[in-house]
Design a binder for these strands. Structure first.
Lengths: 245, 245
DNA sequence: CGCGGTGTTGACTTGCGTCAAAGTTCGTGG
DNA sequence: CCACGAACTTTGACGCAAGTCAACACCGCG
């Protein structure tokens, strides 16, 4: 089985065999975690970086009144903030949405890897910039789009991101989020998520069954929700010098 | 006059005189721009990084229906994405909110600077991580907070960020945003921004006059809006080794 | 077979948007 | 230096998308 981080980075940069091997070496002692486990709690001072190998995780914040905002969804191949240890206390929490496999990478190993493997360093920068772009797009959605469009837009994004790591089967992929979690990610209530899901079903846009989502007509869903995949920066930039930076 | 980037980074790391001089050398040929100027348009392929020296700028996206979401507000000392050139086309636009002074730094100069000055590299990483944390907090606000709290929360943030670069006078600072721009940043209409501003005035929280905002009682505003400054990571981490990373 | 976590449904409420008009401020050119 | 227009702010009436509350159904699991 291919390492999902290698797979993800390969969609953007050319990795040498040495680069691949270096990444895979970091994944030799994976940890298995159960859904609901908290990896990092707001206020912690982590000295390691987490890399998801299998399953889903999420970043979130809990407010004083108990409400929760999900800030990001992490899929296999996603790295939790390569330089997180530069900050003092972390300002949000990270937990597992499903049973998952992951590795804890000491900060020294990350620094070492990026110093010895410029292509990997470049790939990590790319991944960081894409994570930020996703965050921006979520802000745009929650600020400007209708709840229906927001939900459909998220499905388009998750579909492409899952496809990038080879975890889709045509329009179908595993989606372990409950309606309440979807709501917390999109800034709406689970009741309203439910209503919008049904609208999408009756309009023939999706089918969902036991944690599987099927997007019946991706093109139509995209055009209805105004989804533009440019922010995922999936296009490989062959013309760029591979070296420094 | 102190360079605002030097001032900002100094709040987190110790810069040597050589570090400071290197940054200041990059700012020798500033450009003066008028309010409303577009620095980067969605779809561009920038090969330079912008550094704001004076005035305000903003990142934003325009949707198909013409609505605009402001994704970030940039203050003096803010750098527009140190590694932006790694991506292909940029996925959002950047414009000037007020008349401003800024410099365009070629990507080679950024790479060179960070390779020769590890402390600066570390500071740039810190600034990047804080920018991301601000983005997360905006998402939390727009997703979970009432419009009143969102507005007050933003004022608390801008006040601290302006103070960090020495641009406050007690609770007073220059705030060049129109009510429409505030609305586009907070995901609400300018009409509603107006109503919430008046509520804040009648409750004795703020005074505003000709682009100046005065926060009368920062502690009260903070507790009302649930503002926790942890995400700005203003605390200097003296205990950390200054070297690599 | 019962129980806790989900999903579904309907009735009712409300925060915020929409629309539209009047008031204010400010920059610019005559 | 004043007048005029454009951009911004303020106000009020009204509508609606989405929240709230509450009951019920379902489903997997011990």
């Amino acid at each position: 089985m291919v390492n999902p981080l290698v797979e993800k980075l390969s969609s953007f940069i050319d990795l040498s065999n040495a680069d691949r091997a270096a990444i895979e070496t970091l994944c030799l002692a994976p940890i298995e975690g159960k859904a609901g486990t908290e990896l990092i709690r707001e206020g912690d001072r982590p000295e390691v970086v987490y890399l998801l190998l299998k399953g889903w995780a999420y970043r979130y914040k809990i407010l004083a009144d108990g409400s929760r905002q999900i800030i990001a969804v992490l899929l296999p191949g996603d790295l939790c903030d390569q330089r997180i240890f530069i900050l003092g206390e972390i300002d949000h929490s990270i937990g597992l949405l499903s049973d998952a496999r992951y590795v804890k990478i000491p900060k020294e190993a990350i620094i070492d890897l990026t110093e010895r493997h410029p292509a990997v360093a470049r790939g990590f920068w790319w991944a960081t910039l894409v994570d930020e772009a996703i965050l921006r797009e979520w802000l745009v959605g929650i600020g400007q789009r209708s709840s229906f469009d927001r939900l459909g837009h998220l499905f388009c994004e998750l579909w492409l991101r899952m496809r990038q790591v080879g975890l889709t089967d045509e329009g179908r992929f595993h989606l372990p989020l409950t309606q309440e979690q979807l709501g917390d990610a999109l800034g709406m209530t689970s009741v309203h998520v439910n209503r919008m899901l049904q609208k999408m079903r009756t309009e023939g846009l999706i089918v969902s069954e036991s944690k599987q989502l099927i997007i019946l007509d991706p093109d139509r869903l995209r055009s209805i929700t105004g989804f533009n995949p440019n922010y995922l920066h999936l296009i490989r930039r062959k013309e760029l010098a591979p070296a420094r930076g």
